[in-house]
Design a protein around this nucleic acid. Structure first.
Lengths: 251, 251
DNA sequence: TTAATTTGTGCGATATATGAACAAATATCA
DNA sequence: TGATATTTGTTCATATATCGCACAAATTAA
């Protein structure tokens, strides 16, 4: 790509939008400038542009994003068949399991939720399509990383901030790579409170009819209800069934 | 705002992102140019910028959005307290009702879903946070429009494409305004298959502790299970309870 | 093959970013 | 409290980047 094929005003504007996610919903020009590292004058122009287009409102002091901004992410969710195809299967899965079911894809070192059927609230954080979690310590992340060639998985781990969320979190790269091999051979991953104390989850890959892993689905349950050791026994048959149904419809 | 405070390169780029939502996930440069009405050279630069930043991938012929694009909409969902606060209440509501519960806000002539607790699939379309429906024929839309001053509600109807989705859809502005008055006085709206045949729903406003309507929540049920006439009897107590709980936590 | 469409690129005209300057607002301290 | 320092929003001139046109190259269709 040539230098002049890059619209830096656009790139700067996108950076400004993302700055809102990191903290609160209200940002002053100076705050946005600090978060993005862009010049105050530049940030101001981006924010005024967002306001002019209705993606943000300005009260003279703070800018706030409006729901119109959801159109941007929704362009992906609506245009990509995967979330739409998976959602009904997920609804059924969650209902049968009596626990939350989710689907995600890998984006760099993180898993991104693309669909979710929620039965009850068990996590402290609110997960919706678009939510992100570190891949290395999430059940769906383990499944997705296990599907990569080992060299790639290793590269992802190398640029991951392997910080322990709980005392259970595995953070040693070699141990994680061994875990990926185990996940690959058994076809599922179980997480025992590595992400959040009190939460267990089990995930399987979603494959298309050519056998390529295109996403992962999981079921999460409170450790108090379902011990990690029981996760596979309780939920693997349901997950396998959903996995099989999806393999037939995904090309 | 001064002319020079508008970054048109940014605005053009956003338009290109939205073009993906309207059709499929793959767009060629020429297609994107047609959809946006922008010059091909401009669209090409925007798309290459998106690709360079990882928001899209380019196979030399077609551009496809990547899940990274979800960061943009998610900046709103994560930064705005409303979805996060409402979600657990919605989960509980859906579980008690045994049917899907959703929350939305008004954006122009449309309602935008900001949270959803899905129990089972009843609609032909897949609703996720960011999904949009015409406000005039959705239960939450009726509630949100009823909360506006009548002149504003009238103005919204004036710029709405009042097309009937089903034979039941009310499309006469005066009839709709009368319906809004009824909704305002009774405090809830019931929709009987105006959006989709076989689907009934009931919505109430979500008010903050100053009595301002900041969102709407609803329960949807298949008409085969719950007749429109029974909706209020069956679900209004649950909705009122959730409404009351939210009023206490929203400032 | 020709014709039609799509894509890539150079260039002049136009729009935008930059950083400094300044005023207004806010915070700090005696 | 009042004086001073700091932060913030805004404007401006100018250097730089982008736009959209026109044309060429490549691809696709007939």
């Amino acid at each position: 790509m040539r230098e002049t094929d890059f619209v830096s005003g656009f790139a700067r504007g996108l950076k400004v939008i993302e700055a809102f996610g990191e903290t609160q919903q209200r940002l002053s020009i100076a705050e946005a400038s600090k978060l993005t590292g862009l010049d105050r004058a530049t940030v101001r122009r981006s924010l005024l542009t967002l306001a002019e287009l209705g993606y943000a409102v300005y009260d003279g002091k703070f800018f706030t994003l409006t729901p119109k901004i959801l159109r941007l992410g929704h362009a992906y969710l609506a245009a990509t068949p995967l979330p739409t195809i998976i959602q009904p299967h997920l609804d059924q899965l969650a209902e049968q399991a009596g626990h939350n079911a989710s689907a995600s894809v890998l984006d760099g070192t993180e898993v991104v939720y693309i669909a979710r059927a929620s039965q009850r609230r068990v996590m402290s954080i609110n997960l919706t399509p678009g939510s992100r979690l570190p891949a290395f310590c999430a059940s769906m992340g383990r499944v997705l990383l296990a599907a990569l060639p080992e060299s790639e998985a290793r590269a992802v781990l190398a640029r991951t901030d392997l910080k322990a969320n709980t005392p259970n979190t595995k953070t040693d790269p070699e141990e994680l790579l061994a875990e990926f091999r185990r996940v690959r051979s058994q076809g599922y991953a179980v997480i025992d409170q590595e992400l959040e104390i009190g939460l267990c989850s089990i995930a399987v890959p979603v494959e298309n009819n050519r056998g390529q892993t295109v996403a992962a689905i999981n079921i999460g349950a409170p450790a108090a209800y379902v011990a990690a050791a029981e996760m596979a026994e309780r939920f693997l048959p349901l997950l396998r069934e959903t996995q099989k149904a999806l393999r037939l419809v995904l090309r």
